[in-house]
Simulated assay, not measured.
Amino acid sequence: MTSAVHSKPAILLVHGAWHGAWCWEKLVPELTALGWRVATVDLPSASADPDNTAGMYDDALAVRACLDGIEGPVTVLAHSYGGLPATEAAVGVPKVSRLVYLSAFQLEEGDSLAGQSGGQLPSGDSGTLPAPDDPYTYFYADAAQEDADRAAERLVLQTVKSVSEPLTAAAWKTVASSYIVCEKDAVLPPVLQEAMAARADRSYRLPSSHSPFLSMPAELARLITADAHR
């Protein structure tokens, strides 16, 4: 790899529950065009296997393994549930220069997704959760129908264990962080996002539903890039 490539900023994209690295397919070329080196990760807790028992800590190990393979300072952008393994994985990793939470869970150590759900999510070491019955409304309300259809067809199961395991540390307390509030989000109400965004060093807003990487990838890529240049 040449020094010219090394001079480009690096970003690792961490997807949310029920999704996979495929969800970034419209955002990756936008970031690449703006000069980023882009890496993605498939979290093991999201799988079509109903017997899957991978948890949040397994996801964090997968994120950490990806970070180990990236040279230079790295921005980690996490979406939704992905905020937990990203927060866990970035602890004590000097090369992580910034955490970006995209309508993501920016939580305190000791917190889990199940613990934050008010009893709406089960907890335990086994079992899986299906995606919402209406992913169009929850995830892709402002995406093009073709993109929404393609994404909905690829959703998989999410393990109960992943939403049950609590953070052991919170990387955002030692790593600079930004939060992007999605103003039309039906999964994480903006008021909840804003409460978590108060933990970040700075925050931004997009007039999008839960998945701006599908509905407005160019705008999202420009925002990520502008934030990195501040």
Rank of each mutant, 00 (worst) to 15 (best):
C182E: 13
C182A: 15
C182H: 05
C182K: 07
E183C: 12
K184Y: 15
K184D: 15
K184L: 15
D185C: 11
D185T: 10
D185A: 13
D185W: 07
D185P: 08
A186H: 15
A186M: 13
P190M: 08
P190D: 02
P190S: 08
V191L: 10
V191I: 13
V191W: 08
V191C: 02
V191Q: 12
V191Y: 07
Q193A: 08
Q193C: 08
E194F: 00
E194K: 14
A197C: 07
A198W: 01
R199C: 03
R199Y: 12
R199F: 08
D201V: 00
D201G: 15
R202C: 09
Y204C: 04
Y204E: 11
Y204Q: 13
R205N: 02
R205I: 01
L206V: 04
L206P: 08
P207N: 10
P207C: 10
P207M: 09
P207D: 14
S208Y: 01
S208N: 09
S208D: 12
S208V: 12
S209V: 04
S209Q: 03
S209D: 15
S209K: 03
S209C: 14
S209E: 12
H210E: 10
H210P: 05
H210W: 10
H210D: 09
S211C: 15
S211N: 11
P212H: 11
P212Y: 06
P212D: 09
P212I: 06
F213M: 14
F213V: 00
L214M: 13
L214K: 06
S215E: 10
M216K: 04
P217G: 09
P217R: 07
P217F: 07
P217T: 01
A218K: 13
A218G: 13
E219S: 11
E219A: 15
E219F: 01
L220D: 01
A221V: 04
A221Y: 06
L223D: 05
L223I: 02
L223S: 04
I224Q: 02
T225F: 01
T225Q: 02
T225N: 12
A226M: 08
D227C: 11
D227G: 02
D227A: 11
D227Y: 02
D227L: 01
